[in-house]
């Protein structure tokens, strides 16, 4: 990519302090998202996908600490920015959609007002224009009968509807970066399809960069330009979606694909992934955190390694790629 990326995360490491010791949740994570690009962050639960997003947005749990790295966004390092400036940026330039829309919406305020609030605070709309602009936003996220729905409270709307309201709020100020954390978990496939189409459409229209966090590889492949696979706090592979599906080079990605129902015709055709995620509290974690689950492991796998280029825009963190 020639143009400067919208977001460039480099060498990001995060630790969590817990009762049972320090958990090294992320280690040296590099992530680039171009303008108008949609990047999927996939991996099992505990792989660090959400932590990557939270750390970048500066909304990490108090027990978590960024130990190294930078996240360059529009000329500023998000990780070094004072909280006040970051908060200002979060409303206007950076947006986030959370997993559970109902808890993220204010239950005692009408949804139209909630969108209007954001528009007034960050979008430069006046109090008089805001309600009309809010209805316009609801129409854009394809909420039927937006004039009536704008006057509804969150509890009066279905889950899919609330999720669309969340998206309307997130997109109200035309952010240049959107982070969507499993935005369609728990929604019906039909609603999921509509919401994903919508995010893609807005990304194309306004050149918005999108980080899409999911554990559904097929969903990532259908709607994202590039897929970044995480395992135990490391990025293990990054490639354009079609390329990743055609030929995964990291053994973990290959295993993940083999476990995803889709093409196979029998349950026996699916394979599970042996072993579990390593305990990230251990101090003797190997350089490749997958090596203990990997059937291709060789003695060399203990020495440090980095993401290496194995093809056009295809990076793999494996000494012996497939």
């Amino acid at each position: 990519m020639t143009a400067a990326p919208a977001l460039k995360v480099e060498n990001l490491s995060v630790e969590f302090r817990t009762r049972a010791g320090v958990v090294r949740v992320l280690e040296a994570v590099d992530l680039e998202v171009g303008k108008g690009e949609t990047v999927a962050l996939v991996g099992e639960s505990g792989s660090g996908k959400s932590v990557t997003a939270f750390a970048t947005m500066g909304i990490l749990d108090p027990a978590g600490r960024v130990t190294s790295g930078s996240a360059m966004f529009g000329g500023a390092d998000l990780l070094a920015l004072p909280e006040r400036e970051l908060a200002e940026l979060r409303g206007r330039e950076l947006s986030m959609i959370f997993q559970n829309p109902r808890t993220a919406l204010n239950p005692i305020r009408r949804v139209g007002q909630q969108i209007a609030d954001v528009l007034v605070r960050h979008g430069g709309a006046t109090r008089a224009q805001a309600p009309q602009a809010a209805i316009e936003m609801l129409r854009r996220v394809r909420i039927p009968d937006p004039e009536r729905r704008a006057r509804a409270y969150p509890f009066e709307l279905s889950g899919g509807m609330c999720q669309r309201v969340m998206i309307a709020i997130a997109l109200a100020c035309r952010p240049s970066l959107l982070i969507a954390d499993e935005p369609t978990t728990g929604l019906d496939v039909t609603t999921q399809a509509v919401i994903m189409d919508l995010i893609g459409e807005l990304a194309r229209e306004s050149g918005m960069a999108t980080v899409f966090i999911t554990h559904d590889l097929a969903l990532a492949a259908e709607y994202c330009d590039r897929i970044v696979v995480m395992h135990a706090g490391h990025i293990v592979e990054s490639a354009p979606s079609a390329q990743l599906f055609a030929g995964a080079r990291h053994p973990y990605t290959a295993r993940l694909l083999a476990a995803t129902p889709g093409e196979t015709d029998s349950l026996q055709g699916l394979q599970s992934i042996p072993g579990n995620l390593p305990d990230l509290r251990r101090t003797d974690l190997p350089a490749c955190r997958y090596s203990e689950r990997c059937e291709r492991r060789k003695p060399e796998c203990v020495s440090p390694l980095a993401l290496a280029k194995v093809g056009e825009r295809h990076l793999v963190a494996c000494r012996f790629p497939l």
Partner: peptide, 16 residues
């Protein structure tokens, strides 16, 4: 519904 794909496979095979 709440499980990772790798665990899902194991549980589905167990059920079968």
């Amino acid at each position: 519904a709440a499980l990772d794909v790798s665990v899902q496979v194991v549980i589905l095979q167990l059920l079968q």
